[in-house]
């Protein structure tokens, strides 16, 4: 299938370009890449440790995500979601931003679930607002942030507020500007799913009463989950590997030396958050280690941008949305977070 080869090579090329850009900007000479082949053993071990730990850490959440998504697919009727979501989009986006308080799912588990919800009729701005907001606006992340910044409780509160602003703005902008369907028409796979639905439902209704079929349906939740697991899992693996490479080869001192002025620090911290792809519950501790090196506003930019958009979840989003949509969304969120965190930086001092 030439299309699938294209899809793959595009993703890999994008990832490769990002790494190259990163290396160029961090002052590495490209000739150093040639030295990758003779990385000392201890560095390989570091790569393995970070790689395995990110993979294992994300595993439970991805698995939960694909199981919930499969269950939604098989047990929730097609238009149910559409009926639950308020007609008024602005209200819908607002609720989506706050949904994480009751339904906290971390970013890894989020993408399969939201894809399913969108296919079930959740409006895209609402779905995106949920994806962006829920990893930050939830009690677990708040508690972790407050713990990481014991001396300044404002950081945790500002993080929530900024995340709300960013997700809300992104949702609204999408609501006003989005035309057409940004979901990736998955070659073969998704089509067959959708196309089969008509048939599938006819079947199921006639057979629903028999217990045996019910059991089969329950089992097929797992079958489905396996499909989605492999779909997301390959990007998790790639993301974890590239993150491990970045963590092993890009030093913090070099990073810090790159930033000039407040603006530079904000941009740098957002880039850093993107590259290291940490979970929203642990990134606050990494941010707190930068306290004093960078202004508070830049730490907030790191804390808000990272959980919304990072390397790992860009790759996973690309399985769901068209590349162009993902790129636009990334720019949109980056701009909103940058402006909001600069403003917050002035306020917080």
């Amino acid at each position: 299938m030439p299309g699938s080869v294209y899809k793959w090579s595009l993703n890999l090329a994008t990832a490769g370009c990002l790494v190259l850009l990163y290396l160029i900007f961090s002052g590495h000479r490209l000739t150093e890449l040639a030295a990758l082949a003779n990385i000392p053993g201890s560095q390989w071990q570091n790569i393995k440790t970070v790689f395995v730990s990110i993979f294992l850490e994300a595993l439970p959440f991805i698995l939960l995500g694909v199981l919930v998504s499969s269950a939604l697919h098989l047990f929730v009727p097609e238009d149910a979601i559409r009926r639950w979501i308020p007609r008024n989009r602005i209200l819908g986006v607002t609720i989506a931003c706050l949904l994480g308080i009751v339904l906290p799912v971390c970013e890894c588990g989020m993408i399969p679930i939201v894809r399913r919800l969108i296919r079930k009729g959740m409006p895209i701005p609402v779905g995106i607002a949920y994806v962006l907001a829920a990893p930050v606006i939830n009690p677990v992340t708040y508690a972790a942030t407050a713990m990481a910044f014991p001396s300044d409780p404002r950081i945790a509160i500002y993080r929530l507020i900024l995340a709300f602003i960013a997700a809300f703005c992104a949702g609204l902008v999408l609501h006003w500007t989005l035309k057409g369907n940004p979901l990736r028409p998955e070659k073969g796979h998704a089509h067959r799913h959708e196309h089969n639905h008509g048939h599938g439902h006819a079947h199921l209704h006639t057979r629903d009463r028999s217990g045996a079929v019910r059991g089969g349906r329950f089992l097929s939740v797992f079958g489905h989950a396996a499909d989605e697991f492999f779909e997301m899992g390959k990007f998790l693996l790639l993301g974890a590997l590239l993150t491990a490479l970045v963590q092993t080869f890009v030093s913090r001192a070099e990073l810090v030396s790159l930033s000039g002025g407040t603006f530079g620090a904000h941009v740098l911290m957002m880039g850093f958050a993107y590259a290291i792809s940490l979970c929203s519950t642990s990134d606050a501790f990494v941010a707190s280690s930068f306290a004093g090196v960078f202004p508070k506003g830049a730490l907030l930019a790191f804390l808000v941008f990272g959980p919304m958009i990072d390397f790992k979840n860009t790759l996973m989003m690309l399985t769901v949305f068209r590349a162009r949509f993902v790129a636009n969304l990334t720019v949109l969120v980056a701009v909103v977070v940058l402006i909001a965190s600069l403003a917050a930086g002035r306020l917080i001092g």
């Binding site: 073969g188 045996a212 097929s220 079958g223």
Partner: peptide, 29 residues
């Protein structure tokens, strides 16, 4: 006979080469 939604559970069937690459991506690490 008892499979309720077998077409849904059936994995996507792309080319053999791509399948090989996909599962290799999991098996190698």
């Amino acid at each position: 006979e008892e499979e309720a939604c077998e077409h849904c559970a059936e994995p996507a069937r792309p080319s053999a080469l791509r399948q090989f690459a996909l599962y290799g991506l999991f098996l190698v690490p």
